[in-house]
Amino acid sequence: MRRFTILIFAVVNAVLNLLGYQTISEEFINDVVAVISGAYFIWAGWKNNYISKKGIRQKEVLKKHKLH
């Protein structure tokens, strides 16, 4: 639901910019994209590596069964 809401705001912003109205500055958009991208990359790194206690246990099970 959140992604759909963000999509609606992005489309409205794009249409208003096409009509000549400055709604959100490009700098602000670039900053928001950079922050969201950074947070996503950190999250993906955390989820896809065996860093947490649960991940360490999963890695041990994989090694035990020679799957890793």
Rank of each mutant, 00 (worst) to 15 (best):
I36E: 00
A10I: 15
K63L: 11
F9V: 14
A10L: 15
T5L: 15
H65V: 07
K66R: 07
I24S: 02
H68K: 08
I8K: 14
F9M: 13
Y21D: 01
G55W: 00
V33F: 02
R57K: 15
F28N: 01
R2D: 14
K66M: 03
N49S: 15
D31N: 05
L7T: 13
Y40K: 00
N48K: 07
G55P: 09
W46N: 07
I56C: 12
F41A: 02
I51V: 15
T23C: 03
N13W: 07
Y21K: 14
S52A: 11
V35N: 04
E60Q: 09
Y50T: 11
I6F: 14
W46A: 10
V35Y: 05
Q58H: 06
T5N: 12
G45D: 09
W43T: 03
K64G: 08
K54S: 12
W46S: 05
F9E: 08
I56H: 10
Q22N: 03
F41E: 03
A39E: 06
L67D: 10
V12P: 08
I51H: 09
I29V: 04
K64C: 03
F28P: 00
I36D: 01
V61Q: 12
I42Q: 08
L7R: 12
D31A: 05
L67A: 07
Y40H: 00
V61K: 11
G20T: 00
K59S: 08
K59G: 06
N30W: 02
E60Y: 07
Y40V: 08
S25V: 02
